[in-house]
Design a protein around this nucleic acid. Structure first.
Lengths: 262, 262
DNA sequence: CGGCAACTTGACAATGCTCAACGCGGGTGG
DNA sequence: CCACCCGCGTTGAGCATTGTCAAGTTGCCG
């Protein structure tokens, strides 16, 4: 059975190996798993930085809003993700954070994080995680700036699929993606109605289906090609599918990019 | 007379105060100022991470390119800026870096950076700098996603103006901005021809002029309002006005959240 | 059964793109 | 020294991707 800490450890170890004491410290810090309702605000732009968020299950998002109400989602926090501890360097948030669907997560207080930062491996892993989230932001900028709506949505689903695969949440070419079409719209800067049209076109072309929060990718190769998706920015090591059931610890194997890029 | 180190110190101290030994260490690390030609590539996507860049004068940019040649600039590096040292956590760059106009900068090798990271104040300051660059990226996403070309370009110029003001490079409501219209296009994801049209409209409305690399803002208040610009994401402390041109205090350079959001 | 959120669908409008040409200035080579 | 050329800026005409508005359907949950 997977616990929050084990998922977090597995994810963070993709960035830097952790010593036993480091894993224990992480487990201690992330014991209290809380449940959050959908659309719950966890941090507000301009308000004090509340805590670092470590996601066990579900999606959250960072977003900014314009005075007129338009919302731009600037990143997703997915299972195994941890938000950037360096936010504590400033006294207030420059963006908001909210859950999308229901979420299980741990909140790490400032002191808790500071304790973790005494461990170099953990510091390095969290930094790596943050760098990847930056890279994702850069890719999104590319997406929103230079790709058609069709490419954009394809690309987003490729990314989500790859990230969920990295934490073992993909089965049978499908995964649960608790996003509404409006969420996708806010992330990719497309109108909800146009998201709808584009999703139907994706369905029609047989590349993927996304229905009742379930994403199924029928032709990953073709989808990645259509999207211009190259997973290298995610810095994923290939996930051993059997690693879900404990027993086989031999990860870190090759950086064998089977779901290859370019 | 301003040296690279003094500019760097002044900028970094906006994030965290530095002790004397820290300043000295920084000076030691950044003694060698190199000159770079315009359009010189300093780091290439996919290639090893060469060095951390500390800018003394001129603009550089981070960018990603699509196979078909389209380029998205994902951030500017401006005088006093330093690129993110955490890039060294990975073996290759996820984006490229190039100069725009001529640039004077120091290159800090991996070992040099590691030495600096022994100083907590420097580590904190560099982290703060990186967090702000992330925040800028988020704002750009908002820009490209949800603002009209007119707002976008206005917003970009507000940002550039505020950032240059923070390092004392604004005089008489004007500053040197070594960008071509094509550069602005690549940053804001607009066509060069449309950038041109928009610039002319900005000129016509009397908000600003941008000619031969010189930006003059005629009505900052109005421009910021038109752009929906709120400087708080830049986390600038008000620049001491006496540092260069006496008199006019920093208008929007807001530690004060009076130019509030929402 | 009612209500609300999410999803669909259609007609129309517009912002910004494409393509194409031309002006202008500064640097370089003959 | 002049002429050429290339990068950059400027302008125009037509077009298409995507936004807007509006209405209707589905489906879940109380």
């Amino acid at each position: 059975m997977t616990t929050l800490a084990s998922r977090l450890i597995a994810r963070l170890e993709q960035f830097s190996p952790l010593t036993l004491p480091e894993r224990i410290a992480l487990e201690d810090a992330a014991v209290t798993v809380r449940r959050f309702a959908p659309r719950e605000e966890l941090a507000r732009q301009g308000a004090p930085v509340p805590a670092v968020l470590a996601i066990y299950d579900g999606f959250a998002c960072r977003y900014r809003t314009l005075p007129d109400g338009r919302r731009q989602i600037v990143g997703f926090l997915m299972p195994g993700d941890i938000s950037d501890p360096r936010m504590f360097l400033f006294d207030c948030m420059d963006h908001s954070v909210a859950t999308l669907g229901p979420v299980e997560a741990a909140l790490l207080e400032r002191e808790s994080v500071q304790r973790l930062e005494n461990y170099p491996g953990l510091t390095r892993a969290m930094a790596g995680s943050a760098v990847v989230q930056d890279a994702i932001g850069r890719e999104w900028l590319m997406n929103v700036g230079h790709r058609s709506s069709f490419e954009r949505i394809s690309h987003l689903f490729c990314e989500i699929y790859a990230r969920l695969q990295a934490v073992g949440l993909v089965r049978e070419h499908g995964c649960d993606v608790p996003l509404t079409q409006a969420d996708i719209a806010d992330a990719m800067a497309i109108t909800p109605v146009h998201v709808n049209r584009t999703l139907m076109e994706l369905r029609r072309t047989g590349l993927l289906t996304f229905h009742s929060k379930r994403l199924v990718i029928h032709d990953l190769q073709a989808l990645a090609h259509a999207a211009g998706f190259d997973a290298s920015y995610l810095r994923l090591r290939a996930k051993d599918p059997s690693a879900n059931a404990p027993g086989r610890a031999a990860l870190l194997a090759g950086a064998s990019p089977d779901t290859d890029l370019r």
